[in-house]
Design a protein around this nucleic acid. Structure first.
Lengths: 184, 184
DNA sequence: CGGCAGCTTGAAAGAGTTCAATCCGTGTGG
DNA sequence: CCACACGGATTGAACTCTTTCAAGCTGCCG
């Protein structure tokens, strides 16, 4: 309902991978609706207010309002599409483009819920979580961010990420909002 | 129905990323059931026989047999879980473990449909598709495979992948079949 | 005024890529 | 039946990107 979450899994001691970020309005747990156990963790990135809804309640709701099934299912299919894009991000884009792509995705998704505008969005990540999301090390994320600032794509570090050059970000990240399956 | 498929996307000229493999029995297109457009491609890896079922037919079926909704939805949720595991694979495992993990996943999934046994499974990948799936280059996949053969994890190149040391593969790949949400 | 989380930096080591060939088996046309 | 074409596998060498290790630094909170 408020604040930012992330979905992640631990690998070996100390190493983890973030698989998605979640914003107010998301239903991160929908992905386990029909699964017996959870194969990963969901945690907070900031102070957050979270609504817990038992699976049984969701299933009841869907049973009485079948039209909702398509909507909820669709939501999980879009999550899957985002996972696919992240596979591409990690597999085939190097640090600079990868981080640019992450910023683009966040801007578009945050705009949808009114938490970002043309100028930028609130910065809710540490460099270390950015590293865990991108499969890079913090030691490499840091200079890459500086590099993006040097190219005037984003503004100086602060409480917000200032978007200085949206087209530059889009082109560096090879970003298209296709996979987010927005409405209009 | 027969043969092997893959789900992929092109990045820039010549570079592509495979996001999943599909075996007989899979319904790869279910992931676009509630989406307006496809944001990637699905193609064959071998000669294949494929059944095309219009979305409308699926939706009809689900409307008349609501019990199936959970099953089909579940299928897409498991696909999403596999995507998540691939994110981890690409992000946090290096070549050797990554390829080992891919082999483990294939063995488990192929066993489910009777196409693999303890000894191994049919080899349906070129080194180049393995590279596109793992985010590596063919030039690096090749010696890594040789390395796995050298460690007696898998048998010599041929029409089949011979599994010589299952436990070794599992441990090299940090594999757990958790995320596949198998029945038993 | 510490303590601490998070950010920054430098240097060395490694993993993986790219470029550029070569090799090999198989299928095809003449 | 042989030469050739071709996709796929293999190899070497130079080069890049990224990680790891190892410190410092900085700003905020109690």
């Amino acid at each position: 309902m408020e604040g930012y979450l992330h979905r992640f899994k631990f690998i070996r001691q100390g190493s983890r991978q973030i698989m998605s970020f979640h914003l107010p309005g998301d239903m991160p747990d929908l992905l386990s609706l029909h699964l017996k156990h959870l194969d990963h963790y969901v945690g907070t990135l900031t102070k957050a207010t979270v609504a817990y809804v038992p699976h049984a309640a969701i299933l009841d709701l869907l049973a009485t309002h079948p039209r909702l099934i398509g909507c909820f299912w669709r939501d999980t299919l879009i999550d899957a599409a985002v996972f696919r894009e992240w596979i591409i991000n990690i597999g085939r884009r190097e640090a600079f483009g990868h981080l640019a792509h992450i910023f683009c995705e966040q801007v578009v998704r945050l705009k949808q819920v009114g938490l970002a505008d043309e100028s930028g969005f609130p910065w809710f990540l540490t460099q270390s979580s950015l590293a865990d999301a991108s499969g890079l090390s913090t030691v490499h994320v840091n200079p890459t961010l500086q590099n993006m600032r040097g190219h005037s794509l984003i503004g100086p570090a602060g409480k917000r990420v200032e978007i200085l050059d949206w087209d530059g970000l889009v082109s560096a990240g090879g970003f298209s909002d296709d996979y987010l399956h927005l409405r209009n």
